[in-house]
Amino acid sequence: MTIKALFSTPSAEPYFKDIELPPPKDHEVTVQLLAVGYNHLAKSRAKGAHYTASKDETIVGIDGVGKVKGTGELVYFVSMEGTYAQELNVPKAAVYPLPANSSEEDVDRVIALANSAFASANAFSNRIGSLPENASVAVLGATGTSGRLAIQVAKNMFGAKTVIGIGRSQTKLDQLKKDEPLLDDVISLEESDEAIISGGKLSDIDVVFDLVWGNSASRVLNAAIKSKKVPHKRLVWVQTGQIGGEKADISPMALRSTNLVIVGSGFGPQPFSEIVKLIKVLVEKLADGTIGKGVPYKPLPFGTADERWNDELGDERVFFKF
């Protein structure tokens, strides 16, 4: 069967071409695509810049929603082999059924937000361990889609009591406070380090979920350590994004003077079996609106994916729909 798919190489912009799709193998099902996700991970892999990326020609994309041919079952799936195609053969182990009563709006929410929500859900599930009772969480990079979803994940999936959003723009943080009822407080990096420390909002933080890295991470980490009421109280810093830069300065004194744990969160640190279990739960939470409520997104036509590939990922997340 001939299908149209969007391909990329590290040295070329994504391009459409027709390929022959073979019959599925015994461990696979054929999924007829309804929509595919557009996110930082998909873009980074297409450029060959992500640690999971191929250096050869490959179909772009990391996730999709569609219907299983032969049964009509509505599913979400993840594939390191790419997802931007009219139909694909997908391993059964990578397919996650959506609730049978899912509406088109529910399906759109899942594909628009699943990858962004996975970032924080994976961190809290597999990298932090159990949150302490009445846990206080800070989200660095809170004004973006992944940051807002992290607020909801921290409270609605993992029971955090307090969530503080940290960002560079006071204007965007003020808007976030209006839009996201689960957010308790904010810290603007427009403030000086001294003002952040004296404000005391980081003095009792248990977890910092970092979507930014770079200089912003250095500033917040320094402020969190200097603000701590109890030096031996455990502070877990979970790093999962680097839009602020690839390097952050960390004082060796910070590692010796407090109970600080720094970990990364992604596909590498835990077995795939743990990721499978988490995605199943996350898809259900997105489909029923427990996660994703109020987070803006919109569809674009799949046929424009090559032209729109370099669009910025703004405050309104987009996805490509067939």
Rank of each mutant, 00 (worst) to 15 (best):
D311S: 12
A53F: 01
V263D: 03
S120V: 05
K67V: 13
I197E: 04
P181L: 12
A138I: 01
A224I: 08
D108C: 09
V95P: 01
Q32E: 13
A12W: 02
V276K: 02
D108R: 13
G199N: 02
G241A: 10
E73R: 06
I166D: 00
Q175I: 11
M253V: 11
K178A: 15
A248M: 15
Y96I: 12
N259W: 00
R317F: 03
L182W: 02
N156V: 09
G268A: 14
G165P: 08
A5R: 04
D106R: 02
I3M: 06
G245R: 04
V208N: 03
A138L: 09
V31L: 11
D174K: 14
G82E: 00
A217W: 03
S146H: 03
S251K: 02
M1N: 04
G268F: 09
K226P: 06
N259E: 03
A49Q: 08
R109I: 01
E190V: 11
Q32K: 14
I187L: 10
L211S: 03
S130P: 05
L34Y: 08
K25V: 11
E57K: 08
N39S: 15
K280W: 00
V75T: 09
S227F: 11
I164S: 08
G61C: 06
G241P: 03
S136L: 06
A154R: 05
F267D: 00
N126R: 09
L98G: 03
A305W: 00
H50S: 13
A121W: 06
K161A: 15
G314P: 02
A305P: 00
G144L: 09
S116K: 00
S54D: 05
A94D: 01
R234V: 07
T58I: 13
K226C: 10
N156D: 06
R308W: 02
S130C: 03
G167Q: 01
T290M: 07
G70M: 01
